[in-house]
Design a protein around this nucleic acid. Structure first.
Lengths: 229, 229
DNA sequence: AAACATAATGTCTTTGCGACACTATGTCAA
DNA sequence: TTGACATAGTGTCGCAAAGACATTATGTTT
Protein backbone atom coordinates (compact mmCIF):
# COMPACT_ATOMS: atom_id res chain seq x y z
CA UNK A 1 0.00 0.00 0.00
CA UNK A 2 1.07 3.57 -0.55
CA UNK A 3 2.83 5.65 2.00
CA UNK A 4 0.12 8.12 2.89
CA UNK A 5 -1.55 5.52 5.03
CA UNK A 6 1.35 5.58 7.43
CA UNK A 7 1.94 9.33 7.60
CA UNK A 8 0.68 11.05 10.73
CA UNK A 9 -2.22 13.27 9.85
CA UNK A 10 -2.52 16.84 11.08
CA UNK A 11 -5.68 18.16 12.73
CA UNK A 12 -7.84 19.94 10.18
CA UNK A 13 -10.33 22.56 11.29
CA UNK A 14 -12.48 25.27 9.73
CA UNK A 15 -12.90 28.64 11.46
CA UNK A 16 -14.77 31.75 10.39
CA UNK A 17 -14.23 35.42 10.94
CA UNK A 18 -17.75 36.83 10.75
CA UNK A 19 -17.85 40.60 10.56
CA UNK A 20 -20.67 43.04 10.90
CA UNK A 21 -20.87 46.80 11.30
CA UNK A 22 -23.09 48.18 14.03
CA UNK A 23 -23.15 51.63 15.59
CA UNK A 24 -20.25 52.83 13.44
CA UNK A 25 -18.14 49.98 14.76
CA UNK A 26 -16.66 46.95 13.06
CA UNK A 27 -17.44 43.89 15.11
CA UNK A 28 -16.49 40.26 14.91
CA UNK A 29 -18.38 37.25 16.21
CA UNK A 30 -16.59 35.50 19.05
CA UNK A 31 -17.71 32.40 20.88
CA UNK A 32 -16.76 31.13 24.29
CA UNK A 33 -15.04 27.79 23.97
CA UNK A 34 -16.91 24.96 25.64
CA UNK A 35 -14.08 22.47 25.36
CA UNK A 36 -10.37 22.11 25.76
CA UNK A 37 -8.03 23.43 24.60
CA UNK A 38 -8.55 27.06 25.64
CA UNK A 39 -11.79 26.11 27.40
CA UNK A 40 -13.59 29.25 28.52
CA UNK A 41 -11.55 31.55 26.27
CA UNK A 42 -13.04 33.52 23.40
CA UNK A 43 -12.33 32.20 19.94
CA UNK A 44 -13.62 32.07 16.40
CA UNK A 45 -16.65 29.95 15.59
CA UNK A 46 -15.53 26.79 13.88
CA UNK A 47 -14.74 23.16 14.25
CA UNK A 48 -14.04 19.93 12.47
CA UNK A 49 -15.38 19.00 9.11
CA UNK A 50 -18.04 16.31 9.28
CA UNK A 51 -17.84 14.36 6.08
CA UNK A 52 -21.30 12.95 6.61
CA UNK A 53 -22.89 16.38 7.01
CA UNK A 54 -20.69 18.63 4.89
CA UNK A 55 -20.44 18.49 1.12
CA UNK A 56 -17.33 20.66 1.33
CA UNK A 57 -15.53 23.05 3.65
CA UNK A 58 -17.84 25.93 2.77
CA UNK A 59 -20.64 23.89 4.24
CA UNK A 60 -18.61 23.27 7.35
CA UNK A 61 -18.15 26.99 7.82
CA UNK A 62 -21.84 27.67 7.24
CA UNK A 63 -22.93 24.86 9.52
CA UNK A 64 -20.74 26.02 12.36
CA UNK A 65 -21.88 29.60 11.95
CA UNK A 66 -25.50 28.49 11.89
CA UNK A 67 -24.92 26.65 15.15
CA UNK A 68 -23.85 29.87 16.81
CA UNK A 69 -26.04 32.45 15.12
CA UNK A 70 -28.96 30.54 13.69
CA UNK A 71 -28.10 32.14 10.37
CA UNK A 72 -26.05 31.76 7.27
CA UNK A 73 -23.93 34.76 6.38
CA UNK A 74 -24.69 37.03 3.44
CA UNK A 75 -21.19 36.58 2.14
CA UNK A 76 -18.58 33.90 2.67
CA UNK A 77 -15.18 33.38 1.12
CA UNK A 78 -12.01 31.58 1.97
CA UNK A 79 -9.41 33.65 3.72
CA UNK A 80 -6.32 31.53 4.23
CA UNK A 81 -4.98 28.30 5.57
CA UNK A 82 -2.84 28.65 8.66
CA UNK A 83 -0.78 25.70 9.74
CA UNK A 84 2.01 24.73 12.08
CA UNK A 85 3.12 22.31 14.75
CA UNK A 86 2.65 24.66 17.72
CA UNK A 87 -0.55 26.56 17.15
CA UNK A 88 -2.66 23.86 18.77
CA UNK A 89 -1.47 22.06 21.93
CA UNK A 90 -2.98 18.83 20.61
CA UNK A 91 -0.46 18.70 17.78
CA UNK A 92 0.21 19.80 14.25
CA UNK A 93 -2.80 21.76 13.13
CA UNK A 94 -4.16 23.04 9.84
CA UNK A 95 -6.96 25.58 9.91
CA UNK A 96 -8.89 26.87 6.96
CA UNK A 97 -10.06 30.34 7.93
CA UNK A 98 -13.13 31.83 6.28
CA UNK A 99 -14.13 35.43 6.12
CA UNK A 100 -17.82 36.27 6.26
CA UNK A 101 -20.21 39.21 6.39
CA UNK A 102 -23.70 39.62 7.75
CA UNK A 103 -26.14 42.43 8.49
CA UNK A 104 -26.19 43.10 12.19
CA UNK A 105 -29.96 43.16 12.56
CA UNK A 106 -30.27 39.72 11.01
CA UNK A 107 -28.60 38.05 13.92
CA UNK A 108 -28.68 40.61 16.70
CA UNK A 109 -31.50 39.11 18.72
CA UNK A 110 -30.24 35.58 18.54
CA UNK A 111 -26.75 36.54 19.59
CA UNK A 112 -27.99 38.64 22.46
CA UNK A 113 -29.87 35.69 23.86
CA UNK A 114 -26.86 33.42 23.89
CA UNK A 115 -24.21 33.76 26.49
CA UNK A 116 -21.69 31.80 24.49
CA UNK A 117 -21.47 34.24 21.60
CA UNK A 118 -20.93 37.96 21.31
CA UNK A 119 -20.18 40.72 18.84
CA UNK A 120 -16.76 41.96 19.82
CA UNK A 121 -15.70 45.40 18.59
CA UNK A 122 -12.50 44.98 16.68
CA UNK A 123 -10.89 47.72 18.75
CA UNK A 124 -11.38 45.78 21.97
CA UNK A 125 -9.61 42.71 20.68
CA UNK A 126 -6.14 43.69 21.73
CA UNK A 127 -7.07 43.65 25.41
CA UNK A 128 -8.51 40.17 25.05
CA UNK A 129 -6.67 36.90 25.24
CA UNK A 130 -8.07 34.77 22.49
CA UNK A 131 -7.80 31.08 21.77
CA UNK A 132 -5.05 29.83 19.45
CA UNK A 133 -3.78 32.44 16.98
CA UNK A 134 -7.28 33.70 16.38
CA UNK A 135 -6.36 37.32 16.93
CA UNK A 136 -3.88 37.23 14.05
CA UNK A 137 -6.46 35.53 11.87
CA UNK A 138 -8.97 38.26 12.63
CA UNK A 139 -6.40 40.89 11.78
CA UNK A 140 -5.71 39.13 8.50
CA UNK A 141 -9.42 39.06 7.72
CA UNK A 142 -9.74 42.72 8.56
CA UNK A 143 -6.97 43.60 6.13
CA UNK A 144 -8.67 41.59 3.42
CA UNK A 145 -12.03 43.21 4.09
CA UNK A 146 -10.42 46.64 3.99
CA UNK A 147 -8.64 45.92 0.73
CA UNK A 148 -11.72 44.48 -0.95
CA UNK A 149 -13.77 47.43 0.20
CA UNK A 150 -11.50 49.67 -1.82
CA UNK A 151 -12.40 48.00 -5.09
CA UNK A 152 -15.76 46.33 -4.58
CA UNK A 153 -19.16 46.75 -2.99
CA UNK A 154 -18.62 43.95 -0.47
CA UNK A 155 -19.83 46.09 2.46
CA UNK A 156 -23.40 45.85 1.18
CA UNK A 157 -23.42 42.42 2.79
CA UNK A 158 -23.23 44.17 6.15
CA UNK A 159 -26.48 45.97 5.36
CA UNK A 160 -30.13 44.95 5.24
CA UNK A 161 -31.59 43.94 1.92
CA UNK A 162 -32.72 47.50 1.22
CA UNK A 163 -30.27 50.20 2.11
CA UNK A 164 -29.44 53.82 1.44
CA UNK A 165 -26.24 55.32 0.16
CA UNK A 166 -25.81 57.02 3.49
CA UNK A 167 -25.84 53.66 5.27
CA UNK A 168 -23.42 52.22 2.76
CA UNK A 169 -21.15 55.21 3.24
CA UNK A 170 -21.04 54.74 7.01
CA UNK A 171 -20.20 51.06 6.70
CA UNK A 172 -17.45 51.70 4.18
CA UNK A 173 -15.96 54.51 6.24
CA UNK A 174 -15.97 52.29 9.30
CA UNK A 175 -14.17 49.53 7.47
CA UNK A 176 -11.52 51.56 5.71
CA UNK A 177 -11.20 54.12 8.52
CA UNK A 178 -11.34 57.02 6.15
CA UNK A 179 -14.00 59.39 4.84
CA UNK A 180 -15.37 58.72 1.41
CA UNK A 181 -17.31 60.88 -1.01
CA UNK A 182 -20.99 60.10 -1.39
CA UNK A 183 -20.57 61.04 -5.02
CA UNK A 184 -18.00 58.33 -5.57
CA UNK A 185 -20.33 55.70 -4.17
CA UNK A 186 -23.19 56.86 -6.33
CA UNK A 187 -20.98 56.65 -9.39
CA UNK A 188 -19.95 53.14 -8.46
CA UNK A 189 -23.50 52.03 -7.75
CA UNK A 190 -24.50 53.33 -11.15
CA UNK A 191 -21.52 51.92 -13.03
CA UNK A 192 -21.58 48.47 -11.46
CA UNK A 193 -25.17 47.82 -12.51
CA UNK A 194 -25.40 45.50 -9.52
CA UNK A 195 -28.21 47.35 -7.79
CA UNK A 196 -31.78 48.31 -8.44
CA UNK A 197 -33.57 51.38 -7.24
CA UNK A 198 -36.38 50.50 -4.90
CA UNK A 199 -39.67 52.33 -5.20
CA UNK A 200 -39.39 53.31 -1.55
CA UNK A 201 -37.53 56.03 0.22
CA UNK A 202 -36.94 56.35 3.92
CA UNK A 203 -36.63 59.24 6.27
CA UNK A 204 -33.34 60.01 7.89
CA UNK A 205 -33.71 63.42 9.49
CA UNK A 206 -33.66 65.31 6.21
CA UNK A 207 -34.63 64.71 2.63
CA UNK A 208 -35.94 61.19 2.05
CA UNK A 209 -33.23 58.75 1.03
CA UNK A 210 -33.54 56.42 -1.93
CA UNK A 211 -33.43 52.74 -1.05
CA UNK A 212 -31.35 50.41 -3.16
CA UNK A 213 -31.12 46.64 -3.23
CA UNK A 214 -28.77 44.13 -4.77
CA UNK A 215 -30.18 42.63 -7.94
CA UNK A 216 -31.11 39.00 -7.29
CA UNK A 217 -28.65 37.58 -9.80
CA UNK A 218 -25.92 40.19 -9.46
CA UNK A 219 -22.31 39.17 -9.34
CA UNK A 220 -19.89 41.22 -7.36
CA UNK A 221 -18.13 43.68 -9.63
CA UNK A 222 -14.52 44.54 -9.04
CA UNK A 223 -13.76 48.09 -10.00
CA UNK A 224 -10.59 48.92 -11.88
CA UNK A 225 -9.61 51.60 -9.44
CA UNK A 226 -9.29 51.63 -5.68
CA UNK A 227 -10.80 54.23 -3.48
CA UNK A 228 -7.87 56.29 -2.30
CA UNK A 229 -6.27 55.17 0.93
CA UNK B 1 -12.82 12.73 25.39
CA UNK B 2 -14.11 15.15 22.82
CA UNK B 3 -15.84 14.21 19.65
CA UNK B 4 -13.16 15.04 17.11
CA UNK B 5 -11.35 11.83 17.95
CA UNK B 6 -14.22 9.81 16.58
CA UNK B 7 -14.99 11.85 13.48
CA UNK B 8 -13.75 10.39 10.23
CA UNK B 9 -10.96 12.54 8.88
CA UNK B 10 -10.80 13.65 5.26
CA UNK B 11 -7.67 13.22 3.17
CA UNK B 12 -5.63 16.40 3.18
CA UNK B 13 -3.23 17.15 0.34
CA UNK B 14 -1.23 20.07 -0.98
CA UNK B 15 -0.94 20.68 -4.74
CA UNK B 16 0.78 23.43 -6.68
CA UNK B 17 0.07 25.13 -9.96
CA UNK B 18 3.53 26.23 -11.09
CA UNK B 19 3.46 28.61 -14.03
CA UNK B 20 6.15 29.87 -16.30
CA UNK B 21 6.18 31.76 -19.57
CA UNK B 22 8.34 30.44 -22.37
CA UNK B 23 8.26 31.23 -26.08
CA UNK B 24 5.27 33.57 -25.68
CA UNK B 25 3.32 30.73 -24.08
CA UNK B 26 1.98 30.29 -20.60
CA UNK B 27 2.93 26.85 -19.36
CA UNK B 28 2.14 24.84 -16.28
CA UNK B 29 4.21 22.11 -14.67
CA UNK B 30 2.53 18.72 -14.86
CA UNK B 31 3.83 15.46 -13.46
CA UNK B 32 3.00 11.92 -14.41
CA UNK B 33 1.44 10.16 -11.46
CA UNK B 34 3.47 7.21 -10.23
CA UNK B 35 0.76 5.85 -7.98
CA UNK B 36 -2.92 5.18 -7.81
CA UNK B 37 -5.33 6.80 -8.13
CA UNK B 38 -4.97 8.09 -11.69
CA UNK B 39 -1.67 6.25 -12.04
CA UNK B 40 0.00 7.29 -15.29
CA UNK B 41 -2.17 10.36 -15.77
CA UNK B 42 -0.85 13.90 -15.71
CA UNK B 43 -1.55 15.89 -12.60
CA UNK B 44 -0.31 18.71 -10.44
CA UNK B 45 2.80 18.23 -8.33
CA UNK B 46 1.80 17.74 -4.74
CA UNK B 47 1.18 15.28 -1.98
CA UNK B 48 0.60 14.81 1.68
CA UNK B 49 1.90 17.05 4.38
CA UNK B 50 4.67 15.42 6.40
CA UNK B 51 4.50 16.88 9.88
CA UNK B 52 8.02 15.76 10.62
CA UNK B 53 9.48 17.48 7.56
CA UNK B 54 7.16 20.43 7.04
CA UNK B 55 6.83 23.39 9.37
CA UNK B 56 3.65 24.38 7.57
CA UNK B 57 1.79 23.85 4.31
CA UNK B 58 3.98 26.33 2.44
CA UNK B 59 6.89 24.03 3.15
CA UNK B 60 4.93 21.07 1.88
CA UNK B 61 4.31 22.86 -1.40
CA UNK B 62 7.96 23.85 -1.71
CA UNK B 63 9.21 20.41 -0.81
CA UNK B 64 7.00 18.70 -3.35
CA UNK B 65 7.99 21.18 -6.05
CA UNK B 66 11.65 20.71 -5.23
CA UNK B 67 11.20 16.96 -5.61
CA UNK B 68 9.98 17.45 -9.17
CA UNK B 69 12.02 20.39 -10.36
CA UNK B 70 15.03 20.54 -8.05
CA UNK B 71 14.06 24.13 -7.43
CA UNK B 72 11.99 26.35 -5.22
CA UNK B 73 9.74 28.77 -7.04
CA UNK B 74 10.38 32.51 -7.18
CA UNK B 75 6.89 33.17 -5.94
CA UNK B 76 4.40 31.08 -4.00
CA UNK B 77 1.01 31.91 -2.55
CA UNK B 78 -2.07 30.05 -1.49
CA UNK B 79 -4.73 29.75 -4.12
CA UNK B 80 -7.72 27.98 -2.64
CA UNK B 81 -8.93 24.93 -0.81
CA UNK B 82 -11.00 22.56 -2.86
CA UNK B 83 -12.93 19.84 -1.08
CA UNK B 84 -15.63 17.28 -1.61
CA UNK B 85 -16.60 13.67 -1.19
CA UNK B 86 -16.18 12.66 -4.83
CA UNK B 87 -13.05 14.37 -6.11
CA UNK B 88 -10.80 11.55 -4.92
CA UNK B 89 -11.85 7.89 -5.29
CA UNK B 90 -10.24 7.12 -1.95
CA UNK B 91 -12.79 9.23 -0.12
CA UNK B 92 -13.58 12.72 1.07
CA UNK B 93 -10.68 14.89 0.10
CA UNK B 94 -9.44 18.35 0.96
CA UNK B 95 -6.74 19.90 -1.21
CA UNK B 96 -4.92 23.12 -0.55
CA UNK B 97 -3.89 24.42 -3.96
CA UNK B 98 -0.92 26.75 -4.28
CA UNK B 99 -0.08 29.01 -7.13
CA UNK B 100 3.58 29.54 -8.01
CA UNK B 101 5.83 31.25 -10.54
CA UNK B 102 9.31 30.50 -11.79
CA UNK B 103 11.61 31.63 -14.58
CA UNK B 104 11.66 29.03 -17.29
CA UNK B 105 15.42 28.88 -17.69
CA UNK B 106 15.86 28.14 -14.00
CA UNK B 107 14.32 24.74 -14.29
CA UNK B 108 14.29 23.97 -17.97
CA UNK B 109 17.19 21.59 -18.04
CA UNK B 110 16.11 19.62 -15.02
CA UNK B 111 12.59 19.22 -16.33
CA UNK B 112 13.79 18.18 -19.75
CA UNK B 113 15.83 15.37 -18.24
CA UNK B 114 12.93 13.92 -16.33
CA UNK B 115 10.31 11.93 -18.08
CA UNK B 116 7.86 12.30 -15.24
CA UNK B 117 7.49 16.07 -15.50
CA UNK B 118 6.78 18.48 -18.32
CA UNK B 119 5.87 22.06 -19.08
CA UNK B 120 2.40 21.90 -20.54
CA UNK B 121 1.17 24.87 -22.57
CA UNK B 122 -2.05 26.05 -20.99
CA UNK B 123 -3.76 25.93 -24.37
CA UNK B 124 -3.14 22.22 -24.72
CA UNK B 125 -4.77 21.38 -21.44
CA UNK B 126 -8.27 20.99 -22.73
CA UNK B 127 -7.28 18.03 -24.88
CA UNK B 128 -5.67 16.32 -21.92
CA UNK B 129 -7.35 14.15 -19.34
CA UNK B 130 -5.88 15.20 -16.04
CA UNK B 131 -5.99 13.58 -12.64
CA UNK B 132 -8.71 14.61 -10.19
CA UNK B 133 -10.14 18.09 -10.80
CA UNK B 134 -6.72 19.47 -11.57
CA UNK B 135 -7.79 21.13 -14.78
CA UNK B 136 -10.29 23.30 -12.93
CA UNK B 137 -7.68 24.16 -10.35
CA UNK B 138 -5.29 25.25 -13.07
CA UNK B 139 -8.00 27.39 -14.63
CA UNK B 140 -8.63 28.98 -11.24
CA UNK B 141 -4.93 29.70 -10.84
CA UNK B 142 -4.79 31.20 -14.29
CA UNK B 143 -7.61 33.58 -13.49
CA UNK B 144 -5.83 34.64 -10.33
CA UNK B 145 -2.55 35.16 -12.15
CA UNK B 146 -4.31 37.22 -14.80
CA UNK B 147 -6.08 39.37 -12.25
CA UNK B 148 -2.95 39.98 -10.19
CA UNK B 149 -1.02 40.85 -13.31
CA UNK B 150 -3.42 43.74 -13.85
CA UNK B 151 -2.46 45.44 -10.61
CA UNK B 152 0.99 44.15 -9.69
CA UNK B 153 4.38 43.23 -11.09
CA UNK B 154 3.96 39.52 -10.29
CA UNK B 155 5.10 38.45 -13.78
CA UNK B 156 8.68 39.46 -12.95
CA UNK B 157 8.86 36.14 -11.14
CA UNK B 158 8.60 34.45 -14.52
CA UNK B 159 11.75 36.27 -15.62
CA UNK B 160 15.44 35.86 -14.85
CA UNK B 161 16.93 38.01 -12.14
CA UNK B 162 17.89 40.69 -14.67
CA UNK B 163 15.32 41.49 -17.28
CA UNK B 164 14.32 44.13 -19.78
CA UNK B 165 11.05 45.95 -20.11
CA UNK B 166 10.57 44.23 -23.44
CA UNK B 167 10.76 40.83 -21.78
CA UNK B 168 8.40 41.93 -19.04
CA UNK B 169 5.99 43.21 -21.65
CA UNK B 170 5.92 39.89 -23.49
CA UNK B 171 5.25 37.96 -20.31
CA UNK B 172 2.47 40.28 -19.24
CA UNK B 173 0.85 40.21 -22.66
CA UNK B 174 1.00 36.42 -22.69
CA UNK B 175 -0.68 36.22 -19.31
CA UNK B 176 -3.45 38.75 -19.83
CA UNK B 177 -3.87 37.97 -23.53
CA UNK B 178 -3.89 41.61 -24.49
CA UNK B 179 -1.36 44.15 -25.72
CA UNK B 180 0.02 46.58 -23.21
CA UNK B 181 1.86 49.87 -23.61
CA UNK B 182 5.57 49.82 -22.88
CA UNK B 183 5.12 53.32 -21.51
CA UNK B 184 2.65 52.08 -18.90
CA UNK B 185 5.10 49.47 -17.68
CA UNK B 186 7.91 52.00 -17.44
CA UNK B 187 5.69 54.28 -15.40
CA UNK B 188 4.84 51.43 -13.07
CA UNK B 189 8.44 50.31 -12.70
CA UNK B 190 9.35 53.85 -11.80
CA UNK B 191 6.43 54.45 -9.43
CA UNK B 192 6.69 51.16 -7.57
CA UNK B 193 10.30 51.74 -6.56
CA UNK B 194 10.65 47.97 -6.48
CA UNK B 195 13.38 47.76 -9.08
CA UNK B 196 16.88 48.95 -9.60
CA UNK B 197 18.54 49.85 -12.85
CA UNK B 198 21.39 47.51 -13.62
CA UNK B 199 24.59 48.95 -15.05
CA UNK B 200 24.28 46.57 -17.97
CA UNK B 201 22.29 46.67 -21.13
CA UNK B 202 21.70 43.85 -23.55
CA UNK B 203 21.26 43.65 -27.25
CA UNK B 204 17.95 42.69 -28.73
CA UNK B 205 18.20 43.43 -32.41
CA UNK B 206 18.02 47.18 -32.01
CA UNK B 207 19.00 49.76 -29.45
CA UNK B 208 20.44 48.18 -26.31
CA UNK B 209 17.85 47.49 -23.65
CA UNK B 210 18.26 48.53 -20.04
CA UNK B 211 18.36 45.64 -17.58
CA UNK B 212 16.38 45.91 -14.37
CA UNK B 213 16.34 43.73 -11.29
CA UNK B 214 14.10 43.42 -8.28
CA UNK B 215 15.58 45.16 -5.26
CA UNK B 216 16.68 42.53 -2.75
CA UNK B 217 14.28 43.65 -0.02
CA UNK B 218 11.45 44.81 -2.22
CA UNK B 219 7.88 44.00 -1.35
CA UNK B 220 5.37 43.52 -4.06
CA UNK B 221 3.48 46.74 -4.66
CA UNK B 222 -0.18 46.64 -5.56
CA UNK B 223 -1.11 49.48 -7.84
CA UNK B 224 -4.32 51.35 -7.25
CA UNK B 225 -5.43 50.97 -10.80
CA UNK B 226 -5.72 47.96 -13.07
CA UNK B 227 -4.34 47.75 -16.54
CA UNK B 228 -7.37 47.87 -18.80
CA UNK B 229 -8.86 44.53 -19.74
C1' DA C 1 26.47 54.79 -44.96
C1' DA C 2 21.74 53.60 -45.34
C1' DA C 3 18.02 50.63 -43.93
C1' DC C 4 16.07 48.57 -40.33
C1' DA C 5 14.91 47.16 -35.54
C1' DT C 6 14.03 47.76 -31.00
C1' DA C 7 14.28 51.05 -26.87
C1' DA C 8 12.99 55.12 -24.70
C1' DT C 9 10.62 59.67 -24.38
C1' DG C 10 7.13 63.44 -25.11
C1' DT C 11 2.68 64.67 -25.05
C1' DC C 12 -2.16 64.52 -25.74
C1' DT C 13 -6.43 61.95 -24.62
C1' DT C 14 -9.42 59.33 -21.61
C1' DT C 15 -11.33 57.74 -17.43
C1' DG C 16 -12.83 57.70 -12.90
C1' DC C 17 -12.14 59.35 -8.10
C1' DG C 18 -11.72 63.66 -4.88
C1' DA C 19 -13.37 68.04 -3.55
C1' DC C 20 -16.76 71.09 -2.90
C1' DA C 21 -20.35 74.31 -3.99
C1' DC C 22 -25.08 74.16 -4.91
C1' DT C 23 -29.81 72.48 -5.18
C1' DA C 24 -33.74 69.49 -3.37
C1' DT C 25 -36.68 68.02 0.06
C1' DG C 26 -37.66 66.29 4.20
C1' DT C 27 -38.30 67.28 9.83
C1' DC C 28 -38.86 70.16 13.76
C1' DA C 29 -39.68 74.02 16.60
C1' DA C 30 -41.27 78.64 17.36
C1' DT D 1 -47.27 78.57 8.83
C1' DT D 2 -42.77 79.36 8.18
C1' DG D 3 -38.02 79.43 8.69
C1' DA D 4 -33.92 76.95 10.52
C1' DC D 5 -31.76 72.81 10.05
C1' DA D 6 -30.46 68.22 8.33
C1' DT D 7 -29.62 64.96 5.14
C1' DA D 8 -29.98 63.55 0.03
C1' DG D 9 -28.58 64.26 -4.37
C1' DT D 10 -26.31 67.01 -8.59
C1' DG D 11 -22.94 69.81 -11.31
C1' DT D 12 -18.50 70.84 -12.23
C1' DC D 13 -13.69 71.26 -11.92
C1' DG D 14 -9.25 69.25 -10.66
C1' DC D 15 -6.07 65.54 -10.65
C1' DA D 16 -3.66 61.15 -11.24
C1' DA D 17 -2.57 57.35 -13.91
C1' DA D 18 -3.39 54.54 -17.99
C1' DG D 19 -3.90 54.44 -23.30
C1' DA D 20 -2.44 55.98 -27.81
C1' DC D 21 0.87 57.23 -30.77
C1' DA D 22 4.36 60.25 -32.83
C1' DT D 23 9.16 61.23 -32.24
C1' DT D 24 13.80 60.56 -30.95
C1' DA D 25 17.78 57.44 -29.63
C1' DT D 26 20.88 53.94 -30.54
C1' DG D 27 21.94 49.63 -31.65
C1' DT D 28 22.67 45.77 -35.84
C1' DT D 29 22.86 44.35 -40.60
C1' DT D 30 23.90 44.74 -45.36
Amino acid sequence: MVSQETIKKPLFTVDSVLFTVHEDTLKVLMVKRAQQPFKGAWGLPGGFIDIDLDQNTDMTARRKLADKTGFTPNYLEQLQVISGPDRDPRGFSVTLAYFALVAHQSVASHIDSVEMACWMPISELKELTTAFDHRQIIELARQRLKQKTLYSMLPVFCLPQKFTIGQLMVVIETIIEKRVQRKSLMRRIEASEMFEISNEKISSGGRLAQLYSLKPDANIVNFERNLSI
